[in-house]
Nucleic acid binder design. Sequence first.
DNA 1: CATTTTTAGTTAGCCTCCTAACTATAAGCC
DNA 2: GGCTTATAGTTAGGAGGCTAACTAAAAATG
Lengths: 198, 198
Amino acid sequence: MPHLMLKDLPRYECLLEAAREFPDMDPSACEVFLNLLRTADDVFDVIEANFSNHRLSQGRFGVLMLLWRPAAKSGSDGDCACNAPRTPADLADAAGVTRATMTGLIDTLERDGLVKRGVDPADRRMQQVSLTPKGNEVLRAMLPSHFQIMSSVMASLKENERDALVKLLTKISSQVSRQKAETADSRAGADAPTRAGQ
Amino acid sequence: MPHLMLKDLPRYECLLEAAREFPDMDPSACEVFLNLLRTADDVFDVIEANFSNHRLSQGRFGVLMLLWRPAAKSGSDGDCACNAPRTPADLADAAGVTRATMTGLIDTLERDGLVKRGVDPADRRMQQVSLTPKGNEVLRAMLPSHFQIMSSVMASLKENERDALVKLLTKISSQVSRQKAETADSRAGADAPTRAGQ
DNA sequence: CATTTTTAGTTAGCCTCCTAACTATAAGCC
DNA sequence: GGCTTATAGTTAGGAGGCTAACTAAAAATG
C-alpha cells in the first residue's frame, strides 16, 4: 500500500551517479520526489495504525467521514461541505473511487453494522446510505486520537513553516495538474497534430 | 491505492468548524497533513501512469530497480547502494514488503519474462533472482520518461525551495520516527507502568 | 406509447498487499 | 548422529483497489 517501495532512500551520491548515466535525470528533483513520497508514507502509516486499532481502514474511514455530520446541527452550516452525500454514486465521486469499489466498501461496512442502505422512494434505482448509531459511535471513539496524531506529527513545525510547506506542496500539485491538462490536450489533438515541429 | 480517499480537500473554514467540536483538533496541522497526502498522491499518480504504460506497477518497478545495476560496471562503486540484493528475502527486506508479497511479485515478473529464479548451489533453501535481458530492456526503455516526469513535476521549484521542502519533510519524518519509538517504549513498559500519573 | 439511451448499482475476474500456516533445508545442541 | 530450532520460500485466504460486462429503472425521443 505504500507509494514508495523502498525501505531506505538512496544516498545523494547514488543519485549523482545515476545522473551520469541518464542525462535526463535531475538529482535534486529526484531527491525531492523521493522525500515527498517517503514522508507521506511515514505519516500515512501512523494514521493507518490508528484506523486499524478501531477496525477501520483508509477507505472505510473515508466513507464514514463522508456520511458523518458533526452532532445535531441546525441549518447553520449551509456553507460547509458537510452536506453529506448519501447515494453510493455520490460517495464514490466524493471519495474518488469507482462505484464498484464503493459497493465493496459499503458491503463490508454494512456487514459490520456501521452503515445501512435504504431505498429512495422517488427513484428505485437509488439507495440512501447512512451511518448507524454504531457507526457514529466508532467515529466518535476514534476521531480524538486521529486528531491528536495529526497534531503531534506536525508538532515540530512552527506556524510559518507549516505555511511554507503548504505553499510548496501546492506548487507541486498545480504543476501536476497543468501537466496533466497538457498531456490530455496533446492526446486530444493527436489526430490533427500541429505543424509546429516542422 | 491513494492515501487520501477524498477528491477535494475540505476548505479551511470547515476545519475550523470541526475544531470547535473537537478541542484536540489543530486546524493548521490538519491542513498540512491533508496537503501532504494530496500532493504525494498527485505525484504518485503521474509516476504510476508511466509505469502502467510500460506494463509495470510500483511494486514491479521496485523489484526491477533493486535488481538493476547501471550498465556493465567494474568494482568502482563499492560505495554505492547498487550492490543488488539477490534473494527473495533480501528483496522483500529492501522493498519493505513481506516475503509472501515478494513471492507474488517475482511470480508475475517471472511469468512475464522480466526476471528469472536460479538456485543457490550452497544452500538449497535459497534462490538467486536476476534480471533477464528483457527485464533490462524494459527498464532502460522506461527510465528516461520516469526521470523526465520527476524533473518536470519539480520544475516549478527553484533550488532553494527544493532544499527547504526536503528539510521540512525530513522534520516531519523524524518526528514520526521519534513518536513511533516512544509508542514502542510505552508499550514495552505497559506491564510496569510508571506512577507518575498518580 | 414504444423504443432507445442514460443512469445506478452489482457482479465477475484480475492485481497487489497482508497474515498465518505450511514445507523443506540448514544449523545448533545434547 | 538424532532432536530441536531457525531460516527460506510458498500457499491459502482475506481485503480493497481496478475494469468491463451486466441488470434494473428512469428519461429522452420519435
